[in-house]
Nucleic acid binder design. Structure first.
Lengths: 347, 347
DNA sequence: CTCGGCTATTGAAGCGCTTCAACGGCGTCC
DNA sequence: GGACGCCGTTGAAGCGCTTCAATAGCCGAG
């Protein structure tokens, strides 16, 4: 039997018909054993199950969903698994998917729009029940394409007012607001917001929140704009402005629009002699990206509710899949502040 | 047309037959347009393509692979996407998969054997070309099941001498060896290895390497064993032994068998007054897990070659898929040392 | 002893696609 | 001008499964 099993495996895998023949029953009975066991007499069921085991039969999911008309998987496409937000999100999504008896397939578009489109199409063709997408900028065409095929898409972490679908966001305005409030509470007299490219919506929102907090407190907030939210850009900013910040009349609070920027800024500031952190300059990140935490000095940041975003996104998707009368909704979750050495230790 | 498209999307998606009818050609011709365009006259091709666009036709990948007999995707199953090793691995695997025209599906078993089995079966039933598995301990049954169905599996990061298949490993003995050598080079006179549970092969190997380096240098290496490789256990170890380490006659070098342990140890040591790091005690991690880098003091560690492991694993898998005469191989890649403040700054 | 009403099983009709033998039209060559 | 070959196209036969109407077998009620 071992030989026999091995041989049949080497060649083509055994089909349901093979199982039926081996068990001396009809094809439909095998199907019933698998899908409606209560319809089958116990003796028959046992015989079929034994045949299945002996032949090493594996259901063909492709044929199954062809005949049955649907699959039980959903997909999550994220731009970068290196960002811990998306890892947390995938964990939440997976847990919630299993609650609903769905399997979650994860794909990373590696920050490439082309790759994102490839996966959208792949999952579209695979007839998944629906998709969760943490879209890149300019994803509209791909999203609309999938949606127009009747396949629901829930957006996560990024919204597009022109796309009409369920969305799960974190409150990036609050993110910036909390970051600024935290810095202000440590006694800084001046704020600097290091912004990324205009097109990055989360970054824009954080700026808005920070600005609001600053004006509420009557503190000046100045702006530094960079072309990319990377550690390298952060280092450049630090080198360029570090001396001026340290020389300011009052203590300066820096809000980096992402943790990678914060990392770079800290790296360069710490390399400059005579600047005390957080004495002269206090620095905050604002997206809780753990892969930026390889820092010479642990820095404060704002943590996004990644896990809950994943959970909520699956809930919305499941509702839309089931829903005859579904109305698109947007869920907004709040981030939380994470205080560390780059801002504390002084008043 | 917009209405029409929307309607057909709401209901069932259009099939190839629908396209054929719309374009006034036979079913087979549509298939040819999609799969062998050069066989079709240009005028016909254009007509068909237009019909496809108008109907919003999407190939059904399930039917396709049923009829065609194969898919073009492979899967990667990892225990935890929170560990940056597996994130790097998935990036490498994805890049290499695309080189070969394959799509990579990623699944996380969330450290649950049951979940790992679920995904093994899911991908088995989905008739993927093969799987990459970073197995959990005790995975043999599931792996053998999939392999016995004729579906190749490549193991990553963990080997099992009882399972006969291609494997990609990092050299954990070298990992421990490098860590110990690095500490010795900074002038420690005594080494401590903080080991995890016996059953964790990588941890055992690191201990072996560290032991070897210690004996080569004629330095004593003592052992502390913990039940789990977590930050909490690390803190417990630090609290228990910290004072003794600091009081030792010579400078002590601590090798934690994982970065999470190192993190915990550092957290507790730094909370104890009067201990200088790396003056009295130097601490190293040894698996380069970036999610443990939220450390009060950046620590040295050994970085695994995650990306290259992903690439190599896909290569082996592709070879086995293609290979009539395939011989199982094991590729071993070397880690590299990462020096930071927890060990440097003193001689 | 018959018949209605069960339950367990069967067989066939698709699901949407790929593949391939067969076909028809047309230009070529002798 | 007829035979030949070629290219573009067709139609049908599956791929492995689900579903469902139809059937067979069985029991108890009449």
């Amino acid at each position: 039997m071992s030989d026999e099993a091995k041989q049949s495996a080497r060649a083509a895998q055994p089909s349901m018909q093979d199982v039926a023949t081996a068990a001396g029953v009809a094809l439909g009975t095998v199907s019933n054993v698998l899908n409606h066991p209560q319809r089958v007499a116990e003796s028959t069921r046992l015989r079929v199950q034994q045949a299945i085991a002996e032949l090493g039969f594996v259901r063909n999911a492709n044929a199954r969903s062809l005949a049955g008309g649907s699959t039980d998987s959903i997909a999550l496409i994220v731009p970068d698994l290196g960002n811990s937000l998306f890892v947390d999100m995938s964990k939440g999504a997976q847990a919630e998917a299993r609650e609903h008896g769905l399997s979650l397939l994860i794909a990373s578009s590696a920050d490439s729009l082309a790759e994102q489109d490839r996966y959208l199409d792949l999952f579209d063709e695979a007839r998944t029940q629906g998709m969760l997408l943490a879209p890149m900028h300019d994803s509209r065409a791909g999203i609309e394409r999938v949606r127009s095929h009747g396949r629901p898409v829930v957006l996560v972490n990024y919204s597009d007012p022109l796309i009409e679908c369920c969305t799960v966001l974190m409150d990036n305005v609050l993110d910036g607001y909390l970051a600024a409030r935290h810095l202000l509470s440590t006694g800084v007299g001046e704020l600097v917001f290091v912004a990324g490219p205009e097109r990055l919506q989360p970054v824009r929102d954080r700026q808005l929140g920070a600005t609001r907090a600053a004006s509420e407190a009557g503190v000046e907030l100045s702006l530094v704009r960079v072309d990319a939210v990377t550690a390298a850009e952060g280092r450049a900013v630090g080198s360029e402005h570090g001396a001026a910040w340290a020389a300011a009349a009052c203590r300066v609070g820096i809000i980096a629009s992402t943790d990678l920027l914060a990392l770079g800024i800290l790296q360069s500031l710490l390399a400059m002699p005579g600047i005390s952190i957080p004495g002269d300059v206090a620095v905050m990140g604002s997206d809780g990206n753990r892969s930026a935490w390889e820092s010479p000095l642990p820095f404060s940041t704002v943590e996004p509710p990644g896990y809950r975003m994943g959970v909520e996104a699956v809930r919305l998707l499941v509702e839309e899949i089931a829903g005859a009368s579904h109305e698109h909704r947007t869920t907004v979750l709040s981030p939380s502040i994470l205080e560390r050495e780059s801002t504390l230790g002084h008043r």
